[in-house]
Design a protein around this nucleic acid. Structure first.
Lengths: 118, 118
DNA sequence: TTAATTGTACTAGAACAAATAGTACAAGGA
DNA sequence: TCCTTGTACTATTTGTTCTAGTACAATTAA
């Protein structure tokens, strides 16, 4: 798994891992049911402590992105559509918040549209 | 000055203050040349330590938003247009980054447009 | 002149979250 | 049996933020 970490960022390592795996799922690079690396293995790969990966996996499991099976391994959930939808929704509402901020500052919708890559 | 602080947020207090003052400048609520509260005064108002305000003011000064004059007080910079422009630019590029992410996930520009409040 | 207010500049410590280190257990598979 | 898996726990380290406290110089107002 190709995961880039930024140790300078304010975002905790474990959350960066969560975000990257969610991104890989949304991009279909990780497929439903697919097994992902064991905690210890990914810890070695990324050069972080296993507990950090454990925390990331716990978060992903609570969000329904992955399923951990004792002694078997960890797998991408079977129904990925919900994960994708949630992710898209959150990005869209993020953008809309920022559009609102631009309007408050005094830009009108036309000016804003002009500057967006659409 | 009406500044709302969120003590639960991951964003440090001093950065929240920086952001709020930049926002008030962009909204023309704080005008060029206008004096803003003394460090100790704002610290009392917001219920934080003066050093925290000092750090926020230092950051704002390094960004050219305010000017601190020893024994005089602290003032909004005379040329506010640069501040506004920088702020707008950063929001716009933020939005464009997210649009790109949505495209990577598989939405086309039309679908994205439909969901934006424009 | 005197007192109050201003920004500035330090050091020290408290508080908190993140990450590390280490150990141990139970269960499945080769 | 031995290895790998996820799980669970405690203790420690680290870095950042924030607080606490003190002091100084310069301006302003009484």
């Amino acid at each position: 798994m190709n995961i880039a970490l930024d140790y300078q960022a304010r975002v905790p390592i474990y959350e960066q891992i969560v975000g990257e795996i969610e991104r890989l799922v949304a991009l279909n690079i990780l497929s439903p049911g697919e097994q992902i690396p064991a905690i210890r293995e990914l810890a070695l790969t990324l050069g972080v402590n296993p507990n950090t990966i454990k925390k990331a996996y716990d978060t992903l499991e609570s969000r329904g992105v992955i399923i951990s099976k004792s002694t078997k391994g960890t797998f991408i959930t079977d129904d990925v559509s919900v994960v994708k939808k949630t992710l898209v929704d959150s990005i869209v509402s993020d953008i809309n918040e920022k559009i609102e901020r631009l309007e408050n500052i005094g830009l009108d919708k036309k000016e804003i549209s002009k500057r967006l890559k659409l």
